[in-house]
Computed example of a mutant assay.
Amino acid sequence: MPGLRRLLRDDQGRVLVVHPVYKDEWDIPGGIVEAGESPVSALLRELQEELGIAPPVGQLACVDWVPPAPPWDAGLMFVFNTGVLTDSRIAALRLQPEELDEYVFAPPADLDKLLPPGLARRMNAAVLAADAGQTAYLEDGLIRLLP
Rank of each mutant, 00 (worst) to 15 (best):
M1H: 08
P2K: 01
P2N: 06
G3V: 01
L4W: 01
R6M: 02
R6D: 00
L7M: 04
D10K: 01
D11C: 02
D11T: 01
Q12C: 01
R14L: 07
R14G: 06
L16C: 03
L16M: 10
V18W: 05
K23Y: 03
E25F: 01
D27F: 04
I28W: 05
I28E: 06
I28V: 14
P29E: 04
P29F: 02
G31M: 10
G31R: 09
I32Y: 06
I32R: 05
A35M: 09
A35W: 04
A35E: 14
G36D: 10
E37Y: 01
E37K: 02
E37L: 06
P39I: 03
P39D: 14
S41M: 08
S41I: 02
A42Y: 04
L43I: 00
L43R: 00
R45D: 07
E46I: 08
Q48D: 12
Q48W: 12
Q48S: 09
Q48H: 09
E49R: 12
P55R: 08
P55I: 05
P55Y: 07
P55H: 08
P56E: 13
P56N: 05
G58I: 10
Q59P: 08
L60Q: 09
L60G: 09
C62M: 12
V63Y: 11
D64F: 12
D64H: 10
W65A: 13
P68C: 01
A69K: 12
W72R: 15
D73R: 14
A74P: 08
G75W: 13
L76P: 09
L76H: 10
L76K: 13
M77W: 11
F78W: 12
V79C: 13
V79D: 10
F80D: 11
N81E: 11
N81I: 00
V84E: 11
L85E: 10
L85K: 01
R89F: 00
R89C: 00
R89N: 00
I90F: 03
I90V: 15
I90H: 04
A91M: 06
A91R: 15
R94G: 00
L95T: 04
L95S: 00
P97L: 10
P97C: 10
P97A: 08
E98L: 11
E98I: 03
E99A: 02
L100G: 02
L100R: 03
D101H: 07
Y103R: 07
Y103Q: 07
V104N: 01
F105P: 12
F105R: 07
F105G: 08
F105S: 06
F105C: 06
A106W: 06
P108Q: 14
P108H: 08
P108S: 10
A109E: 15
L111Y: 05
L111H: 06
D112R: 15
P116S: 10
G118C: 07
A120Q: 14
M123A: 10
N124R: 13
N124A: 06
N124F: 03
A125K: 11
A125V: 14
A126I: 05
A126R: 07
V127Y: 11
L128V: 10
L128A: 09
A129I: 13
D131Y: 05
D131H: 09
A132I: 08
A132K: 11
G133D: 14
G133W: 07
Q134D: 15
T135E: 14
A136K: 02
A136L: 02
D140A: 15
D140C: 03
G141Y: 10
G141E: 13
L142H: 06
L142G: 00
R144F: 07
R144V: 15
L145D: 09
L146K: 04
